[in-house]
Nucleic acid binder design. Sequence first.
DNA 1: TGCAGTCTGTGAAGTTTGTCACGAATTAGG
DNA 2: CCTAATTCGTGACAAACTTCACAGACTGCA
Lengths: 209, 209
Amino acid sequence: MTSNIPEVVILRLPLYARVLRGLADRGEDVVSSQRLGDLLHSTPAQIRKDLSYFGRFGKQGRGYRVDHLLRELRQIMGLERQWSVILVGVGQLGKAILTYGGFAPQGFHVVAAFDSDQSLVGTSVGSLTVQASGELAETVKQHQPQLAIVAVPGHACQSVVDMVVRAGIKGILNYAPHQAQVPEGVWVRDIDPVGALQSITYYLKPNGS
Amino acid sequence: MTSNIPEVVILRLPLYARVLRGLADRGEDVVSSQRLGDLLHSTPAQIRKDLSYFGRFGKQGRGYRVDHLLRELRQIMGLERQWSVILVGVGQLGKAILTYGGFAPQGFHVVAAFDSDQSLVGTSVGSLTVQASGELAETVKQHQPQLAIVAVPGHACQSVVDMVVRAGIKGILNYAPHQAQVPEGVWVRDIDPVGALQSITYYLKPNGS
DNA sequence: TGCAGTCTGTGAAGTTTGTCACGAATTAGG
DNA sequence: CCTAATTCGTGACAAACTTCACAGACTGCA
């Protein structure tokens, strides 16, 4: 039974949560869909409609209580718990991801890092020791992480994805420039900065307005 | 006059180009929309429709010539030229971006890096020397870069975006966790790994299928 | 208490995006 | 040359998504 909530809506939830966090930090108690729309470059109707998929969180004549709505959203997205993440690929990108401080505050903890390069295995990056790819299945069985970050070259992506999927991982954040094939029930999001730039240049190309 | 080609189509073009590059590397001459669809997890009809917005590149009974279609797509996206990029924010993330080897092969060259932290200004990262943010306008005037990568903390994002926009930049790749406001005619793409993970956990939350 | 003003939640309408299915072009093999 | 097998390009159709617009709920003030 796949839920009937559009995926585009799910993709917007993190943005809503982020903006609400900002409002909470600035001590704002209540926010209207109008105001949220301004902050998100979206429309009030869109925001109300999106939220209505999950329940009724606002109050007519007032708006939404910031802390309440934020808690609800975090609940909906499953963020009221910690998530364990493994990293595969400890090259430059992988190292940057390991030392990046943005994941942990949101409850995503990298608990193990793997690489196929034997000269990396055993070295320390941040607080982790790089493990051999061969140990992945065993380590996953022990720590039961739910997510994997893949930061390997494009040509290695599919085999790495296959490996983590076989180990039981159901969510993958893929930095490799490759569309990985995954079975039903496994979720992949691609991070593609180069593609993002390329889709910008399309609009800049006819130079002028 | 905004073009009437859907933005979703434009966002798919880089993926098409990437897959075609892979096929070209493997020496394949011709590819059908069926095959492309398999590789992209898309449908043949979608691909034919997308391509038809730009012209007629295929041949009935055969398919698309890989090298020809790739060249056409690169032309369409404006990739048959080099693009100059500036980086703002030379923290851990910024440094990783500077040393990342994925941009240059696609024609995106980082020509200058800026940071507001005086202790970073003057230091070398990769082949660049970090400049003070105050020099940005002047440097942009000289080098005429078309794109900017923003890799600063969320709270600094908007002011940095304002600055690069004022300097004349029309395309921004934003790594900061903040939805920047930009005037008409400026294009922003956000890179949001944390948000991507959060939209995955939504689906994993009801643990089971 | 009553009234004017605000703002949500939601069916219905409208728009955008994706799929279907078929004519026409091309190839390959007698 | 003729026929069977492919495959594109595209208008018509369907599905998905967004916007509209309004009833109903709440607030604040006199």
